[in-house]
């Protein structure tokens, strides 16, 4: 197996995991689990960007999509829970 087939197999594996986590993010009832699943989708997308020879895009997606976006979601969820209780 040369290296290109290994990269394709890794990409297929990551893709299947990404789709499973995206469906979990939509179908789950708890809001915090859905937000964390969306963060994991962003993280796997960052790895896929690196496999497709785009290191700038991978760094941006990891920092902004998987880090700061999830953080803002949790701020909003915390405030809503505090106002509800």
């Amino acid at each position: 197996m040369n290296s290109e087939m290994i990269y394709s197999l890794i990409a297929i594996g990551i893709g299947i995991l990404m789709l499973i986590m995206a469906v979990i993010a939509i179908l789950n009832d708890k809001l915090s689990a859905a937000v964390i699943a969306a963060g994991v989708v962003s993280l796997f997308a960052s790895v896929l960007f690196l496999l497709m020879a785009a290191p700038d895009v991978a760094m941006t997606e990891a920092a902004i999509g998987s880090g700061l976006s999830t953080l803002i979601f949790f701020y909003v969820l915390n405030k809503i829970k505090r106002q509800n209780a």
Binding site: P55, D56, M59, T60, A63, I64, G67, L68, L71
Partner: peptide, 25 residues
């Protein structure tokens, strides 16, 4: 470091700004 060396290695202004904002948070 990431935004000063944006023209030599992968990186740049937007990535460096996001990392600095994470430190502030």
């Amino acid at each position: 470091y990431v935004f000063i060396n944006g023209h030599l290695t992968p990186g740049g202004g937007f990535q460096g700004g996001a990392i600095i904002a994470s430190g502030v948070v």
